[in-house]
Design a protein around this nucleic acid. Structure first.
Length: 422
DNA sequence: TTTGACACAAGTTCACGGCC
DNA sequence: GGCCGTGAACTTGTGTCAAA
């Protein structure tokens, strides 16, 4: 286990750029609030979990957060800034615990699309798991601790510039390891004329920008997205990055996950959980949620996880997923949850026999596939590719049905689907 | 033991098909 | 025709495993 040699992981150690805890329930959506208020009415008393939760907040205003017109602004209890290293210092933890004593036990209620309601209960042992997860993360240094997107900005830069760095770093980060992302960010900061800033991005030739970020995944598309986003930032946001979820997701190349993380890191606001594959995978592995998509995981998790954990959960689980609960080759021996808190520990080592059979289901001519000599960038202009159906069969026996699904999907995502290949 | 093939990680966009 | 859900495409380094 990789530990930080005798250096206690202080708050700032893990958390620069993610320095503030989530505020209370200031950002509940109208829908959630409506449901929660209805719950109170249904109880025949204004004593629902949520009313009590809301009442627990002291009046205030969220930190500069722009609310969408018409959105109710709930009272906010401004908590002192804390770092993600220790993530919840003792004092805050005590506050959180006090609040949890009020909130826990009763299931929250969440509306689903068809108007029905489903009860979403927090997993019984989630707090125990959570605390152990925190402890493990203090002991293990993960790439996200030192090279996470929010840490790659120039610390000497102005807040506005740092926000821009955060956004660019996030845009580069998808499908790219933190370590690689860090190298690309360094190149941008060192080799762009004037350093990494909006002006330099606007001024640089796409080809040159692409060269600088070539190391990251999907650099061609990211070059395009960054250039387009820079124009939008200049024209519509006064050169700063948007401070709303909608504004961020309106930028090309920025989706829900990045938007939530960016809001947290750049604007110190938490409106949702940033769910990447680590969060999605581990939450399903633990049985915290039972979902098929990261977006589904986000909704399910937000339905029961106290809001003050929304920000750190991403950080905790990403690092945990990078170092211990690896997608392949979980290190259960190093995990303190393996003593009964995690079902993965009781799974047999993966012996998933995957049988593949390829057959052509439609095709163009082989000559069409000479990509080396093919330069047309537009997908629509490309010749029809050979599509080969790859059927994947699972031949392993595992007792628990749920475990089977989780286990296999670890190895073969999209198991039920077929994959196309050239 | 080495080598090569294959699978995976990582998030977003967009084309396409089904349904209303 | 519009909406919605599904899944391919995009890139490149790394890990795993079977075959030589």
């Amino acid at each position: 286990m990789q530990t930080r040699a005798g250096v206690p992981m202080g708050n700032d150690d893990l958390s620069s750029g993610l320095s503030s805890p989530p505020s209370d329930l200031d950002n509940y959506s109208d829908e959630e609030r409506e449901v929660k208020e209805e719950e109170g009415e249904k109880d025949g008393k204004n004593n629902s979990i949520v009313s009590r939760f809301f009442r627990s907040s002291s009046p205030g205003k969220s930190s500069g957060a722009q609310k969408a017109p018409g959105k109710a602004i709930a009272p906010v209890k401004k908590e002192p800034t804390l770092g993600l290293g220790d993530i919840v210092p003792t004092l805050i933890r005590e506050k959180v615990k006090k609040r949890e004593n009020i909130v826990e036990k009763k299931p929250r209620v969440k509306k689903v699309k068809d108007g029905e309601r489903v009860k979403v209960e927090a997993p019984e042992n989630w707090e125990e798991v959570y605390e152990k997860l925190r402890e493990m993360r203090k002991m293990v240094e993960a790439p996200v601790d030192t090279m996470g997107c929010e840490r790659l900005g120039d610390k000497a830069a102005t807040p506005k510039l740092r926000r821009f760095h955060t956004l660019i770093s996030l845009m580069l980060s998808s499908q790219t390891k933190d370590t690689v992302n860090a190298v690309a960010m360094k190149k941008l900061q060192e080799q762009l004329p004037g350093g990494l800033c909006l002006e330099s991005i606007l001024g640089v030739e796409p080809k040159r920008l692409d060269e600088l970020i070539r190391i990251v995944g999907f650099h061609n598309r990211k070059t395009e997205y960054i250039k387009k986003a820079a124009v939008i930032l200049r024209d519509k946001h006064g050169g700063d990055i948007p401070d709303t979820f909608e504004g961020l997701t309106a930028l090309p190349g920025v989706g829900p996950k990045m938007a939530h993380l960016c809001l947290s890191a750049a604007w110190d606001r938490t409106e949702g959980i940033g769910v990447d594959v680590h969060v999605h995978r581990i939450c399903n592995l633990w049985g915290w949620v039972k979902t098929t998509t990261p977006e589904g995981t986000r909704e399910a998790l937000q339905a029961w996880l106290p809001r003050d954990r929304w920000r750190e959960i991403n950080f905790l689980l990403v690092g945990f997923g990078q170092t211990i609960c690896l997608p392949r080759g979980r290190r259960c021996g190093e995990c303190t949850l393996s003593n009964g808190l995690c079902r993965a520990a009781y799974m047999e080592p993966k012996k998933v026999k995957v049988k593949k059979e390829k057959r052509v289901i439609s095709e163009g001519s082989d000559e069409d596939f000479d990509d080396d000599n093919y330069a047309a960038p537009e997908r629509s202009m490309r010749p029809k590719r050979r599509r080969v159906k790859v059927e994947v069969k699972e031949e392993e026996e595992v007792g628990d049905e749920d475990m089977l699904v989780a286990d296999i999907e670890d190895v073969v995502p999209n198991l039920a689907k077929f994959r196309y290949k050239r």
